[in-house]
Design a protein around this nucleic acid. Structure first.
Lengths: 156, 156
DNA sequence: GCATATATGTCAACAAGGCTGACATATTAT
DNA sequence: ATAATATGTCAGCCTTGTTGACATATATGC
């Protein structure tokens, strides 16, 4: 593969990648941030809502592993979402220590509102770039992720 | 282009992109953060060092436009870098209101230390993915960036 | 030349969201 | 019974964003 596509990586190419990541991430999160601000929430709340929405019934520990933050940091955000009735917890029947997380109707609505915007942004970029570019985009991003979490994504 | 490469975007594909961006950015910034912590600095300091290193002699206003933060936020970080002798300012000769920013030797060293790690991470992902994938990666990321800043990057 | 706009800096107060450390409780596993 | 696990909570700290107010130097327009 690397012999079929020999890459002559100049310093400028690598710096280009760093800047693309910075600007893309900056702009990708700008609109969600402004929506969340209307609810008194921040990006941390969105991450929780997003991942709980993607995997309903996940345990608190699973979320900690994804976000890679401390349980104290998560606790603050999670408590606010619980109090605001965006998320609900149910005790796991097979292991009653575990609290399984679900979005409420309200939570699903907020999740959908934000995801719609982000989906639209990505869909536009995807369509403008074409299918081959999209495949490359996913392959490279996947390669930037650590070995463990990389397996969450298809590829190889 | 979109007719040559019709894309059937399922919800799952778009969510996949969101998660790739989250995980890649998380892991891309993890190592720099830990290096910076040894200097008592954070990610904001890195951004300044990075962009000043990339465009020596840029003015404060240019940097504000890139980072999209308030001058008060930048001021705090910039003052620390000036006091710590990582960055120096020179008055613009043609417009003496402007302060042009440069890395000091110390600043260049820190910038290089961090960039080496990030370059290595990107270079590995690039090599594993191949040249075509890299091109696609850049095209899609570029498409996620707002119209103005998009022109900082080659393409089209 | 005077008024206005621009580039920069600074003070103060506040909020989000990271962190550490300590401690508590319920439940499961050994 | 004891130890480990999953979760929660309190307290305090740091970084990095915000707003608002104000100051200074310099450039520009009329």
């Amino acid at each position: 593969m690397s012999r079929a596509n020999p890459l002559y990586l100049r310093d400028a190419d690598l710096r280009n990648a760093m800047e693309l990541l910075f600007f893309a991430y900056r702009d990708f999160t700008a609109e969600p941030d402004s929506i969340l601000a209307r609810y008194g929430f921040g990006r941390a709340h969105h991450r929780v809502i997003y991942f709980v929405g993607a995997s309903p019934g996940m345990a608190v520990n699973d979320l900690l592993g994804i976000l890679k933050i401390t349980k104290q940091s998560l606790s603050r955000v999670l408590s606010q979402l619980l109090r605001g009735d965006f998320i609900e917890q149910k005790t796991d029947k097979t292991d009653r220590r575990r609290r399984l997380l679900f979005l409420t109707e309200k939570g699903r609505e907020l999740e959908a509102l934000i995801s719609e915007r982000q989906s639209a942004l990505i869909a536009r970029a995807y369509r403008e770039a074409g299918a081959d570019a999209v495949a490359g985009f996913c392959t490279v991003l996947r390669g930037l992720i650590n070995e463990q979490d990389r397996n969450r994504f298809p590829g190889e």
